[in-house]
Amino acid sequence: MTTDALALPALPRTSGANRLAFHALPVAAVLAFLILGWYALAVGLNSMQVTDRFKRDGITWTTPQLLAATWSMDRPVLPAPHQIAQDFYQTVFATPVTSKRSLVYHAGVTVSATLVGFVFGSLLGIALAIGIIHLPVLDRSLLPWIIASQTVPILAIAPMVVVVLGNAGFTGLLPKAVISMYLCFFPVTIGMVKGLRSPDALQLDLMRTYSASRAQVFRKLRWPAATRFLFASLKVAIAGSLIGAIVGELPTGAQAGLGARLLSGSYYGQTMQIWSALIMASLVGVVLVCIVALAERLVLRYQGSPA
């Protein structure tokens, strides 16, 4: 993962309403196509079990019966979308939030670890970036290792972090937050190094003619210039943080959290539970990124730049 990863060209900025109209129909079409394909796939994947059952019971079946049966199995290979929606509704709205069966409860567990890891990871990332732009030693010797550290499958250490910290007496939120933090700091460091260096020579020269101190250059020029870069990397970071929290829940043996729901669903063959957890995780991810995007707009407006 290099520095270029954050430099994807932005789509042309049009106003929100326009973009919605421009994309709404195609997105709806693609979604409709996906859902239809899903139903078809559900028939294909589930029909084997259904026909077996029909044969065992000695029932002769018609096509509509077969379709209905493949879309309403208890433990389907692939549940139909409406079954997932039902299970999702059941576990989110029809169950009290405090219950262990409530998906909201599990999402809350995961989100709290995500946010703690995100805050500390971002702070660490910003601190490293500040060190790197001010000290040539760190720039030359630490930055290459930070970049190299990302070719290491960091999530592989998740079980070890959980077990080692658990041995040291830390359980629950902290180990997960540490893993999230580890995934967060990198995009923030890289983005902030780029952002803090983004003021051009002319602007830096101007600060020099004002005889501004290093701290003043930082506060009045570099920091504001880095805002866009900061938020671009925060969006990547919070998505990574969520993944870290979910994976961090796997080795503890499925106690609480979305990762635990995935794992226990996979142990007991509860496909619907897995899909509901997956949908919840995706929703949480999208909402978190949207919150960061909203914060970006507010900050940019406060700074007076065209958002």
Partner: peptide
């Protein structure tokens, strides 16, 4: 393209490993 791009951007926010 117009239909796929926004969905892909959404996918980048999702924990697909799940």
């Amino acid at each position: 393209k117009r239909g796929v791009l926004p969905l892909c951007n959404l996918a980048s926010a999702m924990p697909i490993v799940g």
